[in-house]
Design a protein around this nucleic acid. Structure first.
Length: 361
DNA sequence: AACTCGGGGAC
DNA sequence: GTCCCAGAGTT
């Protein structure tokens, strides 16, 4: 016996009155803009994405412009947004799309492109091309688990939730407006069916919500317990030249912060480092490396990092080109670095080891 | 199926 | 402090 389907007409009517005004929803339906927004929104909040989406479009107005850009420019524009594999795949995807003269308009062809998984393929197909498919994101997982009172925990429940939500799209009212129906689900999850304290009294689907009837809506979806985050430690190196510029190095293309600039440093590990041991990783051995006071902390998804900083100055007369890396004005570097590396620069500024942007202004 | 992979905002 | 966000790729 299949469960009853909540009425698409009620949700669409609610959406027509209460939908969020988001920059990528206006005024034209451009697959490039929609795809870019979907990739940026992966595990990232609307508030964080909105200004970065506009700036990215200003710099790379079309998929052809993005495809033609060098990686260094894309990395600098993505700096601070996190999950840098997204930027690498975005760039590769742009080149593939430009080579085939535009985005494909089917789920299966979209799914085959770099950085486009099950969710993003369905989202672009529905929103850009009005294909009647429901993308399963955190919002839809939450709405679906509540409407149908699914008590099985994530991620195991994901296939069941996807099938249940897809059935909603089979209604003629939904299939007639796929892009609106999908975005209505997102908006319902973001503004009414929220993770904590859902506003059920405002919900257009409250009458058909099994989770609400059972009094468990606010506790769904259930999730398996997550592992605790270990602590890792590292030592990084602040090398200055005679002009007060600092040495940055491009990180390897894969792995953590892959392809991004950063301060050179030791590996990050559970045990602490004694100075002599750390100095073996210095970008220029034999200098008077001295520790700056304090430490920088940064939380990653699966570990917490504590970093200390050793500083030194390149001897006068020694060519900056003798050291592997790039020399950057600290005030400029902050804009092209991942957040964790910005923390290190902030620590250096607090110690007076580099000029602060406020002093330069 | 379990891990890796960032950062920030809301609470 | 915790949770979670318009998740994807690798092993």
């Amino acid at each position: 016996m299949l469960p009853p389907v909540p009425p698409a007409s009620a949700l669409l009517h609610w959406y027509d009155r209460h939908r969020r005004a988001l920059p990528w929803r206006e005024p034209i339906r451009d697959p490039y803009r929609i795809w870019l927004s979907e990739v940026m929104l992966q595990q990232t909040t609307v508030a964080a994405v909105a200004p970065r989406w506009r700036r990215f479009l200003d710099r790379f107005p079309s998929v052809q412009a993005l495809a033609a850009a060098p990686w260094e420019d894309v990395a600098a524009e993505w700096a601070g947004l996190g999950y840098y594999a997204r930027a690498r795949n975005l760039h590769a995807c742009a080149r593939a799309v430009a080579a085939r003269n535009g985005f494909p308009d089917t789920v299966s062809e979209l799914r085959a492109l770099p950085g486009i998984g099950a969710y993003t393929a369905a989202a672009v197909a529905a929103i850009a091309f009005d294909r009647p498919v429901v993308p399963l994101d955190g919002n839809v997982e939450r709405v679906t688990s509540r409407i149908h009172a699914v008590e099985e925990a994530l991620p195991g429940a994901r296939p069941r939730l996807a099938a249940l939500a897809q059935r909603w799209m089979e209604q003629p009212e939904a299939a007639g407006r796929p892009a609106d129906f999908v975005q209505a689900l997102f908006d319902l999850g973001a503004t009414v069916c929220t993770p904590r304290n859902p506003a059920c009294v405002l919900c257009p689907w409250q009458a058909g919500c099994a989770g609400r009837r059972a009094g468990i809506a606010g506790t769904l979806p259930r999730k398996l317990p997550k592992r605790e985050r270990p602590t890792r430690r590292g030592v990084h190196f602040l090398l200055r030249d005679g002009r007060g510029h600092v040495l940055l190095q491009r990180r390897p293309p894969k792995g953590l912060l892959g392809g991004m600039l950063g301060l050179p440093g030791t590996p990050w590990r559970a045990e602490g480092w004694d100075p002599a041991e750390a100095l073996a990783h210095a970008p220029r051995p034999g200098l008077d490396w001295h520790a700056l006071p304090g430490e920088a902390r940064h939380g990653f998804t699966h570990f917490e990092l504590r970093m200390t900083l050793l500083a030194a100055t390149l001897p006068p007369g020694e060519a900056a080109e003798s050291v592997n890396g790039e020399w950057w004005n600290p005030a400029d570097a902050a804009g092209v670095l991942p957040g964790v590396m910005q923390r290190l620069l902030a620590l250096a500024e607090a110690a007076g080891a580099v000029a602060s942007p406020a002093q330069g202004a």
